[in-house]
Every structure is written in C-alpha cells, then in structure tokens.
Design a protein around this nucleic acid. Structure first.
Lengths: 277, 277
DNA sequence: TATACTAATGACTAATCAGTCATTTGTCAA
DNA sequence: TTGACAAATGACTGATTAGTCATTAGTATA
C-alpha cells in the first residue's frame, strides 16, 4: 500500500499550505504524478483520505508520547524527556501539526471530530499517567488540572515551531517547561478540573482493545510493510495474539523490532498495551 | 450600515457550523433573508467579508481584555478579574471563538494571517502590561515566559467553553487560574522566552496611532451608529481629536458613553490609548 | 505468442461556486 | 401623479469541483 502513503504525504503538504477544502483532488494527484483515477483506487472519496490521514499522523504522535511516558524510568528527567519529545515531534511534523491542530473540518464533521477527540483523550490519559507516576497520591486532587496546564504549555509553546522556524534550544525549553510543570504540581491548591469534568469533556470513551480488533489492525499494518525482518516480526506477533506461546522477552523483542517502522507506531502502541508492557 | 452587521452575524453562525470555505454566499444571503446582489452591495467579495469579520470580532475581544487590565486598580483581584472577563468573553462569543481560533484560512491567507497575528500581539502586550503592574521588576527575566503560560492556560481551558456547554463556575475557574499564574510568576527560575524571542514571533509590529488613522476609524464607527447620544459623543470626540478643547474629565466621559456600544469597542480602545487613560 | 487479469488513465458529467448585471421595486421631492 | 434616483433582485456566466467509467497499458501465466 505504498501508493496510499505517497498520496497521504503529498496531500499533507498541500493541506498544510492551503487547507483541506481549498485543495482539489486534481492538485494532489498532480503532485503525486498519478492520474485522478488512480487516486480513487486508493481512497473511495476525498473525505476517506482525510480520515486515513488523521489515523496515520495522529497515531504516530500519540504513540510517541505514550512511549516516553511508559519507558522513562528516571523520574528526575521524565518531565524533561516528555517535553523534549513533544517538541521534537512538533518540529519534525510541523506540517501535520499545522493541519491537525488547526483544520476547521475537524470541528464541523462530527465523525472526524470524534476521531480527533478520541486521540486527544488518549494523550490526556498518558499525561495523567505520567503525573501519577511522578507524584503518586500527593496530586490526587489536582492532577487533572495539572494535565490541563501541561496541555496549555504544549499548545502555547508549539506556536514557536508551527508558525516560525527560528532555531530554538530544545533542551532549555524542555527544562523550562518541566520546571513550570513541577512548580504547578507542587503548589496548586485551588483545583478546577475534577475527574468527572475531565471525563465529561473527553466523552469519546476509548474503545477497548479486543483480540479481534487487534488482529485486524495487525493485518492492516502488515500490508504497509515490504517483506523484511519487521514484517516477519509482525506476523509472529499476530500468531502470539491468537495463541501466546513465546515468553514475554521474545514478544517484547518482536515489538521493539517494529517500533521505529514508519506507519507502525500505532500498532506498537496497542501491542504494548495488549501485552501489558 | 446595519445590513453589514446582519450579514456578519449570520455569516458567523454559518462559519461556526461549517467553516469558511464550506459556506456559500448563497447560504449566507438565505439566512439573512436578502438576495445575492444585496450581499455584494455590502461587501465586494466573500474574502472582504472575512476581513471585516476579523476586525469586527477580534477588536471586541482584544478591547475587552485591555479594558480589564487598564481599569483594575486592586492588584489582589486583577488576575481573577482578568480570567473572569476572558472566559466570560469565550462563553458569550463561543461561535466567533470557534471560527477565529480554528479557521485554517487564517494560516493560508498571508494578509489575514498578519491581521490576526497583529491582534494576538496586542493581546500579548496587554498581558505583559498586566504582569508588569502586578510584579514590577521582580519579574524582569521571566515575564514573557509567564505571558506564554497565561496564553496557554487560556487556550487549554477555553476548550471547555468552545466545545461543550457544560455549566461551569466561572469564579472558581478564574481563582484557580489566578493562583496558577501567581505560582508560576513567583517560582519560575528557568526562563525560555526572551524579550527578543517574543518580539521575533510577534513580528507584525503594532502600527502607531496617528491622528489621521484615528479620525478615519472614528468616521467608520460613526457610520455604525444610529443618531443617538452615543453617536453625538463620538462626533464630539472626533472634534477633540482634531483640536482638544474640553478637559480630560469630559473626554473620558464621552468615551464612557460609547464603551458598551456594539461595534465600538475598538474605537474606544484606541481612544483610550490616544488620550492616555 | 496468446490469453487473462489487474493497474492506471483522463475525458467526461453533474453539481456547485463566486461574482455580474439587466431589471424591478421602493422612496423620495416636485 | 409623475419622474428621478437608489436599493434590491435573481437569473445568468464561466470557472472549478468531486467522482465516474470506457479505454488502454502493463504483467503474469499457460
């Protein structure tokens, strides 16, 4: 399915330059060097392209964040790591950030709005998880508030990457925001966001990972890979989902094999959760 | 120019529901109960409508914030007042917030992007001014950072008003954010946003208020008013700009007369600055 | 080479759009 | 009542769009 990826990448460029509505299918196919008909072999409609792109790009972003939160053992630098990764992602994916954090379509198309909201809820959950790891029960009353502050810092400082390409010291930025987050976490006494409120806003409840949905996701991801070690790893993992025979170590190793594979971040994220790493 | 206002209001509703690109002039005129031709008597193009709307709605928003910052004498409640007003505005103008904080057009149309950036810069300036009043020289190193945090809080918590209509306790929210801002201001030691960086990002330098540009603005605003005390006040103020004869008290009174007049917030904001209140 | 199949093409359609302009309607003063 | 002017109309134009489909190109098998 390399054609699909090509289309999504070129479409991202164009959407980032002109927006979704203002970009025609013709323009996309011209930039891809393919015909209009070929486009409709990959995607049924222009809307379906956008849906696929949301999955393709937001999954990468969310999975990235989650990985940092889960794999940072050193609490002293967890926050710094978190912010450094976030802004590295913003820097690297400035184009997709522009599109997915600013496109109006996401507010007007209900289905799409839910999709994006669900990913945002995943991100919020990761942040709360990180805060719980860092501060344990000290933060019981205010953790959702602190999460909102973290998201606010992200949104505000991300503008530096999205709207300009100034050379910025990522390390200092990460340290600065880590300090701010720590200060807020330690000193806040008047919470506003209760757990209930946080859940009301993030309504789109994350759907459970079922064996069936995971197998479907793996099949889909396999199609994105050329025959290779990575593809073989994913096929072995598929068997493990159907019937676990290998040890945790082997399974973890197989997941690591595909962690950096483009288009596979999401399946890695879901596999991590499924096998409880 | 009541027709113009009608069109802008109905267009805002539609843009808020569907976005700018997806809304046709036909739809706008249908909701207004006017013909297509009548639309083009008020606005030369669909783009010109958007330009006018940016001025009309963002000026209200910015002027609102500036007024709080300038007129709050009590430092203890200045921050609370600030946030309460901000979120009252978000609540009241949820539709325009949705449009102007999420429309992609603003990123792809250069001229429009500069317009919006200029208003954002005005807002940033007001916030820095408030922080200077509150913390004097204690905050010299970190005030631009704190300003970015304030904007982050605004962006993050505004989602509560823009995307849902849950009943929220504005007072508690304002207090909660005021506390957070105060905490950040007092404890931050690692700044990231320097004055230089802040100015680089907010490039679109605010243009100076000249007598000429002010007179032009007043003329424009007068056209939005029916004959009334308010209109007379504005006409008197126009004379005062050309040649000051009245005392400060009278001028201030005349400005107060029109402060709450719809469509006049911006001229009030500029008059405030011009007469140095 | 012949056959069967899939992948890819691009001219085409029907719909929609922004913007125009000849015409009508409404409103004054004379 | 008339005539002169401005306000408002909506059918129309030309351009552009998403999506289709009859045709062709490419490739693998027999």
């Amino acid at each position: 399915m390399l054609k699909k990826q090509l289309i999504m990448e070129k479409a991202l460029e164009l959407f980032s330059e002109q927006g979704f509505e203002a970009t025609s299918v013709q323009q996309i196919t011209e930039r891809c060097g393919i015909s209009k008909g070929a486009f409709y072999l990959s995607f049924k409609t222009k809307d379906e392209l956008l849906f696929s792109m949301v999955d393709y790009y937001l999954q990468q972003f969310i999975a990235d964040i989650d990985h940092v939160v889960r794999n940072s053992n050193n609490k002293d630098i967890m926050l710094v790591d978190f912010y450094k990764n976030i802004f590295q992602a913003f820097k690297k994916h400035a184009a997709s950030s522009r599109v997915f954090f600013n496109e109006k379509v996401f507010l007007t198309n209900k289905e799409l709005f839910h999709k994006v909201s669900a990913y945002e809820a995943d991100m919020s959950k990761s942040i709360v998880q990180m805060l719980e790891q860092l501060y344990r029960e000290e933060l019981q009353e205010t953790k959702y508030d602190v999460m909102y502050c973290v998201k606010g810092f992200m949104k505000s400082y991300a503008e530096l990457f999205i709207f300009s390409d100034l050379p910025l010291d990522l390390d200092q930025l990460a340290q600065s925001l880590a300090e701010k987050t720590d200060i807020i976490a330690r000193h806040t006494t008047i919470p506003f966001i209760t757990e209930e409120l946080a859940q009301l806003v993030a309504r789109p409840c994350d759907q459970e990972i079922t064996q069936e949905s995971l197998l479907q996701l793996i099949d889909q991801s396999i199609q994105n890979l050329e025959p290779s070690i990575e593809r073989e790893s994913l096929e072995l993992l598929k068997n493990q989902v159907e019937q676990t025979t290998y040890s945790q170590a082997i399974i973890k190793g197989l997941i690591e094999n595909i962690r950096l594979q483009p288009g596979c971040q999401w399946v890695v994220y879901v596999l991590d959760k499924y096998f409880q790493f």
